[in-house]
Amino acid sequence: MIRILAVDDEPAILRLLGAVLGRAGYTVVGAACAREALAALGGGVEAAILDLGLPDRDGLELIPMLRQAGVPVIVLSARSDVAEKVTALDLGASDYITKPFDGDELLARLRVVLRPRDGQDGKVEAALVHGPIRIDPARHEITVDGRAISATPKEFAVLQALVAARGRILTHAALLEQVWGRAHIGDVEYLRVVIRALRLKIEADPANPRLIRNEPGIGYRLGD
């Protein structure tokens, strides 16, 4: 059984998470505050679902601690504050979901963060696959449904980063830093230009994108 840490000060939410995750076969370890959450880490958990509004300390502070313990974090936020979500992601959260959440969506996000991390044990150059997209970094090749796509170096780098994230959201700043460098962290327009060019090449209908999805004000992720 995969153990998931759920941190929320509302007992009703903890019960709901228990029900939703329990049906999918996970065991939920509930914690009502940061102290309980840190104590629960000792028992070994595979991932954490974390509400940021905790009674004893700011949920944002917990993110680096959980990451350090090797636990991927999905932030469960009641606040519609985009800046806070971006901060959480930049602090190392793997993904976020806003209350009221859709159970299926939460489970999908959880599956993504629980996927075994291939490519991290030395085989950095191995081909990356996400849905119909296959990227071979060594040969600098992209194929979508077996069809070869030509891409500029920036387009290649952006798509590679998205595929490597395997459906996790990447913030605009994270993508810009990874591809253009730290100095261009604010140049969202660069990203827009490259994403638009990529969609023209890989989407069946670039005006109705299914593969490269945007979350307003936050970042991009690959759709399944």
Partner: peptide, 21 residues
């Protein structure tokens, strides 16, 4: 406003979650 949103969304989350089930 943030705490108001929080106070609204917590019960809504519970209702939506249970309705989904």
């Amino acid at each position: 406003l943030a705490s108001l949103a929080h106070d609204f969304r917590t019960p809504m989350t519970v209702i939506a979650g249970q309705l989904e089930v």
